[in-house]
Amino acid sequence: MTATFLIKDGIGGVFITGSLTSATVDTFREQFLTWWQVQPAIHNVVVDLSGVDFLDSAGLGLLVALLKRVSERGGDLKIAGLQKKVRMVFEITRAFKVFEIFETTQEAMQACG
């Protein structure tokens, strides 16, 4: 699992590749929180999952935890680019009701703006 962080128009973008599972969530959590602490001006975040081929309950739990962190700063966390398998996990866990989900990162960033 690798994560890339960038900022565009005041919106944070997180691009993840690989699997987001119990084996990798701790690494990603640390990376995200380190980046989040040094970017106090960022309120909205878009997480691009187009490179994620598998996600389990631990990965989903982490996304929910990150949503809470972002919400505490008054912003929102949006999800973009779900692959079919990850979308199926989102469907059975009803995560669609928790997150705003977009086809592409561009659409998600526009929604943040």
Partner: peptide, 12 residues
Amino acid sequence: GEFVDLQDTWLL
């Protein structure tokens, strides 16, 4: 016919 193998005791 596409499938995802979860084997996750919190899900399936």
